[in-house]
């Protein structure tokens, strides 16, 4: 029973990282229709930014978070302005182009920083564990769970309550009429893309104490993040949260019951099964048109 609960907790903390990666994707893919294969590289850049800030300036992860967010958001902005914005009506070309960007970023990091694994120390303030019966929960992982929920709340507020979010939702639903009412759609898209990239960067920084930092670390995460967006239902924040929890937990549980590889196959099968019966995801957004 304790082993089960420990695994469930580990799954939950993985889910919270996944959630932050998937939120950015949910905005970029779900809202703007861009399949951004470079999203995993934004995670990777976030991780390297955290490493760089720690080794060169001695900044802890928590202090570095806002800086990492801005750094990766800037990279996202450049990718959008330089590549993606020319391809909004050409989804297949976007896949290829962003894949190219992904390879480019990976190789750039390999050439400049090197391909060996890097390690980042977790924040000392969050050292230690919370022990409840037989369940050992590291404080850092508990922090991750709450932080990711805070990020969801902030994103919800940004999308539903701020003027920027209203403009983004308007542009998503009808770009032409939005422009007819003074909304500069290209600017809105660029900022949304940058925000999604920034979230991925933060997720990358936060995952550094748990995994080693390598140039290809994002690839694995981005696949799961896409799964989350698809399972959750495009355009639904609640769906993204629920799906991140499910994918994270399912991965943890299947891995415990079988092994990592078989567990992974089981998760994919489960998702295929789910999509067969709920093709629009768990929480599709329905409206009369």
């Amino acid at each position: 029973m304790d082993a089960f609960l420990n695994q469930a907790f580990a799954g939950l903390s993985m889910a919270s990282i996944l959630l932050m990666v998937a939120l950015g994707l949910a905005i970029i893919y779900g809202a703007m229709g861009v399949i951004n294969l470079a999203h995993g590289e934004f995670v990777m850049l976030g991780a390297y930014s955290a490493w760089l800030l720690q080794t060169s300036l001695g900044l802890g992860i928590l202090v570095a978070l806002p800086i990492v967010f801005l750094m990766v958001a800037l990279v996202g902005l450049l990718v959008e302005r330089g590549v993606v914005r020319w391809l909004y009506h050409r989804p297949l070309d976007t896949i290829l182009a962003t894949w190219g960007v992904a390879i480019l970023l990976q190789q750039l990091v390999r050439s400049v920083i090197g391909s060996e694994s890097r390690y980042v120390a977790g924040p000392t303030i969050l050292d230690g564990n919370l022990v409840l019966g037989g369940v050992v929960m590291s404080n850092y992982r508990i922090f991750l769970i709450f932080f990711s929920l805070a990020v969801v709340a902030a994103t919800w507020f940004l999308l539903k309550r701020s003027e920027f979010g209203t403009k983004l939702r308007a542009v998503i639903q009808n770009k032409e009429i939005s422009e007819c009412y003074g909304i500069r759609a290209d600017r809105v898209y660029a900022l949304a893309f940058a925000y999604g990239a920034g979230l991925a960067g933060m997720a990358g920084a936060l995952i550094t104490p748990l995994v080693s930092v390598t140039p290809s670390m994002g690839t694995y995460l981005v696949v799961d993040a896409f799964l989350v967006v698809i399972v959750g239902g495009v355009g639904s924040l609640l769906g993204t949260v629920a799906a991140a929890g499910m994918v994270g937990e399912a991965t943890a549980m299947f891995s415990m019951l079988m092994n990592d590889t078989i567990g992974r196959i089981a998760v994919l099968l489960a998702i295929i099964f789910l999509i067969r019966f709920k093709p629009m995801g768990l929480f599709p957004d329905k409206v009369r048109r």
Binding site: Q173, N174, I177, C180, V287, R288, R289
Partner: peptide, 12 residues
């Protein structure tokens, strides 16, 4: 501008 078909934002 009030276009043909009105172009109301359906989810707003």
């Amino acid at each position: 501008y009030i276009p043909q078909g009105r172009a109301i934002i359906p989810r707003f």
